[in-house]
Measured scan of single mutants.
Amino acid sequence: KITVTFNGEEKARRYYKKMQKHNLKVEIRVENNQWVVHVE
């Protein structure tokens, strides 16, 4: 499981979509004013 933190929504969403293309289970959320993407 990987957790990647971004300081911008745009970058986070781009990464999220990229990971989805690989058929990975991805989850995006905001934690402590940071955009966090969890990849299983």
Score class of each variant (00 low, 15 high):
32 N>E: 07
23 N>Q: 08
39 V>L: 07
21 K>N: 10
27 E>Q: 08
30 V>L: 14
25 K>I: 10
2 I>N: 06
27 E>C: 09
24 L>P: 04
24 L>S: 06
34 Q>C: 06
8 G>R: 14
37 V>A: 01
26 V>P: 03
27 E>H: 07
8 G>P: 02
6 F>L: 02
35 W>H: 01
27 E>M: 07
14 R>F: 06
33 N>R: 04
11 K>E: 15
4 V>R: 09
38 H>P: 00
20 Q>I: 13
10 E>M: 09
33 N>C: 03
2 I>D: 03
36 V>Q: 05
17 K>F: 10
34 Q>V: 13
40 E>P: 05
6 F>P: 01
20 Q>P: 02
28 I>N: 00
16 Y>G: 05
30 V>H: 14
20 Q>R: 10
2 I>R: 09
13 R>F: 10
27 E>W: 09
37 V>M: 02
21 K>H: 10
7 N>E: 14
37 V>D: 00
7 N>V: 10
4 V>F: 09
2 I>K: 08
21 K>F: 09
6 F>S: 01
39 V>W: 06
24 L>W: 10
9 E>W: 12
21 K>T: 09
13 R>C: 13
20 Q>K: 13
11 K>I: 12
30 V>T: 07
24 L>Q: 06
40 E>C: 10
20 Q>Y: 05
1 K>Y: 14
3 T>M: 08
12 A>M: 02
36 V>K: 04
9 E>T: 02
15 Y>N: 01
5 T>M: 11
38 H>D: 12
5 T>S: 08
21 K>R: 10
15 Y>E: 02
37 V>Y: 00
31 E>I: 12
19 M>W: 05
35 W>V: 03
35 W>A: 01
39 V>P: 00
23 N>S: 07
19 M>R: 02
26 V>K: 00
24 L>E: 04
37 V>E: 01
35 W>F: 04
24 L>D: 03
2 I>Y: 15
30 V>A: 08
16 Y>T: 03
15 Y>L: 03
6 F>R: 00
35 W>P: 00
22 H>P: 04
12 A>V: 02
32 N>V: 05
25 K>N: 10
34 Q>H: 10
4 V>P: 01
21 K>Y: 08
6 F>H: 01
22 H>W: 10
9 E>D: 02
28 I>D: 00
10 E>Q: 09
27 E>K: 05
40 E>F: 15
40 E>H: 13
3 T>D: 04
5 T>A: 09
24 L>I: 09
19 M>N: 02
33 N>W: 05
9 E>M: 11
36 V>G: 01
15 Y>Q: 02
22 H>G: 07
6 F>C: 04
31 E>L: 09
34 Q>M: 14
4 V>D: 01
7 N>A: 11
37 V>S: 00
15 Y>W: 07
32 N>Y: 05
26 V>W: 02
35 W>L: 02
18 K>E: 14
31 E>H: 08
1 K>M: 12
24 L>F: 14
37 V>K: 00
14 R>K: 12
16 Y>I: 06
26 V>M: 04
29 R>P: 00
11 K>F: 12
13 R>T: 07
30 V>S: 07
11 K>P: 15
20 Q>L: 15
31 E>S: 06
4 V>E: 03
15 Y>R: 01
40 E>R: 06
8 G>A: 15
13 R>Y: 13
39 V>G: 01
35 W>Y: 04
19 M>C: 06
